[in-house]
Amino acid sequence: MPHSTTTDELEIIISGGGPKAPGGGGSGDGGDGSSGGSGSALPQRVYVTGITIGMGAILMFFMALVSAFIVRKGMGNDWRAFEIPRVLWLNTAILLASSGTMIYARRLFKRGDQKGFRHWWAMTTILGLLFLAGQLIAWRQMVASGFYLATNPSSSFFYVLTAAHGAHLLGGIFALIYVGWLRLRKLTIETATEVAALYWHFMDGLWVFLFLLLLLGR
């Protein structure tokens, strides 16, 4: 167990490990390093980190529901298949289109076209709202074909998954409105659009996954 300290090691303890020491932490970049530390401004990338972590949590929430869905479908013989509401195809197309308009909006923003950016950003928001309206229509179609929340596990999962996704997407719509119409103070518009876009594409991808799951697993 005895362990002697060499001179080299001693140097490291005193001087702090040589060239690889600085920059290991967070405040080495982002323009705040020169002003003497991380306290003067929060690096913008923390918002991107934050939304990435948040998406991880949301993904786990949905994965729990999805694994419950798969387990439940695998057991018993009381699973009743239902007709996927036709409008879901349209809704999926709308949501995919909204991701497209968002990418376009951000491209315009990078070119400096403020007006075009706002226009396409608003278009994205409207497409998002259309998607939600379409989901409500899908629920109406389910009800019309006699599948209520408690009718069968298959329909219970349909409502739970679509409602949970819809609620998260609604949050995304609020974010879009916030970014598009409100003056931002603490975070730059670049970061705000990046964060909102990450979340929006995530919701889009999540929906495609859920749609395929419902389509193949109903």
């Binding site: 020491a21 920059g23 290991g24 405040s27 530390g37 990338r45 923390v46 980190t49 934050g50 949590a57």
Partner: peptide, 24 residues
């Protein structure tokens, strides 16, 4: 707890002082 975890992770990942590498 989810919000709190988000904060802890974001803070540790991005707000460490200069020179504070993970193994320090």
């Amino acid at each position: 707890s989810l919000m709190s975890a988000l904060n802890f992770l974001g803070t540790t990942i991005d707000l460490r002082a200069k020179g504070l590498s993970l193994m320090r």
